[in-house]
Design a protein around this nucleic acid. Sequence first.
DNA 1: CAGACTTTGTGCCACTTTTCACAAAGAATA
DNA 2: TATTCTTTGTGAAAAGTGGCACAAAGTCTG
Lengths: 212, 212
Amino acid sequence: MNKKVPEGVISRLFIYLREISELTKMNIHTISSAELGERTNLSDAQVRKDLGYFGQFGVSGAGYNTDELKAALEKILGKDSTWNVAVVGAGHLGSALLAYPGLKERGLNIVAAFDVDARKIGKQVKDIVVQSIDELSRAIPAKKISIGIIAVPAKEAQGVADKLIKAGVECILNFAPATLIVPDNVKVKDVDLSRELETLSYFLVKREEMKK
Amino acid sequence: MNKKVPEGVISRLFIYLREISELTKMNIHTISSAELGERTNLSDAQVRKDLGYFGQFGVSGAGYNTDELKAALEKILGKDSTWNVAVVGAGHLGSALLAYPGLKERGLNIVAAFDVDARKIGKQVKDIVVQSIDELSRAIPAKKISIGIIAVPAKEAQGVADKLIKAGVECILNFAPATLIVPDNVKVKDVDLSRELETLSYFLVKREEMKK
DNA sequence: CAGACTTTGTGCCACTTTTCACAAAGAATA
DNA sequence: TATTCTTTGTGAAAAGTGGCACAAAGTCTG
C-alpha cells in the first residue's frame, strides 16, 4: 500500500476535508464524488483517485458517508496530532500569523516568536511575547518546536533558516523571496506573495499582447 | 514561436530574475546554467529548457551574460508595465499586504482597500485609506484596477469574488480557505496559508510513522 | 426479487513536465 | 591556428499526473 503519494493529493485531501466538514455541519450525510468534485472545482475522477491512494471509503451506487469520510481523512492527515510552531520575524506578516486563529484550530500551535529588532522584542500578540532571536536555539528544543515560519526580509532568510535547522526544526514555511539551501532531511515550503502576484500580472501582460 | 508555456516555467523565470538581479548588483556578469540552477535549487537542464521557451540567451562555452539575461527576462515577464491592485479585507493579513513594500517595486500598486467593518473603514495604512466595500463597484473601474486580493473570512470570499468580477477585475489572488467559482476568463490563484502548514505537518506525521 | 439505475474503484491511455544526453558553438590555451 | 575544454540548446526518453471508461458492486423501484 506504500506507493508514493504525490504532494498535490495531500493538498487536495485537505480541501475535501474542509468541504466535508461543512457538509456534516449542515447535516448532510452522503455525497458522491461528482458532487464533491463540483464543490471543489475538481473532476469526479480526481476525487476518487485521490481517495483511492488511501483505501476504499465509498459505497457503489450511493457515494460516501460524510461522517466516515471525515473521520478517515482526519486520520490520514494526522489531524489528531498537534505541532508546535515558531514564527521568526514579527513585522506585519509575522504579526498577522500570530493573530490568525485558524492555525490553532488545525492543530498548529504557535508557541514562540522571534525578532532581531529591539523595538519588537517584548511585544505581545495574543498570548505570545516576541523574544530576541538570540534565544531561538534554546527555545526551539525547550518548547519542542518542529515547524519554523520565516517572515523576515530576504537577506536574513538563509541565516534564520540555518539557525532554525541547527536548533532542530524539521520543516520550514518560508515567506521570504529567497531560495533557501537546506539539508535533505529538512522540508521547505516557499510561499512568495509577490511572486504569486507577479505570475498573475504576467497573465495580464499576455492577455494585453493577445489583444493586439 | 507560440508553443504553450507551462505556468511553472513563468514562476521559475521570476526566480531566475531575482537571482540574476542579485548577481548584477554584485558585479557578476556571467553565469552558467549549472550555477544558476545551484543557486535556485533547480537542475541545469531545467534552467536551460525554461529559457529555451523564449529564445536563445546564452553563449556556448561561456554561459549567460547576467545584464543581458536580466533585460531579457524583464521584457518577457512584462516588468515594464505596472498594474493596479485592490485589497479586500483590512484585517491583519490585508494590512500586512498594504504595508508590504516589495509589491510596488515589482510594478504592483495597491491603490485601494475595502472592508465591511465600520471600525476599519477610514483606517489608513501607508497612503491607502480603507473604504467601505459598497464603494468597490465604483472604485474598481475608476482606478483601473485589474487585480483583486481577497483577504476576508472564507464565508465572505465568494461574495467578494462576485463583486470584484462584476466590477471588472481580471485576476484574483485568494487568501481565503474557500473554493471560488468564477467564469473562465477570470484567473484565480489560491494561497491558503493554513493548508501550506497543514501539508508540512502531514510530512511530520508521515515521518513519525516511519520511525515506528 | 428481478431489472433498471447509480456510483465506486481502477486499469489504461493521453498529456504534461522533467531529465538525459549529445552535437554544435564558442572560449581558452599554447 | 589547431586542439582541448566548457557550456549551450534541444531532440528523445522517462517520469509524473490527470482523465476516460467500464466492470463490479451496491441501491432503488415496482
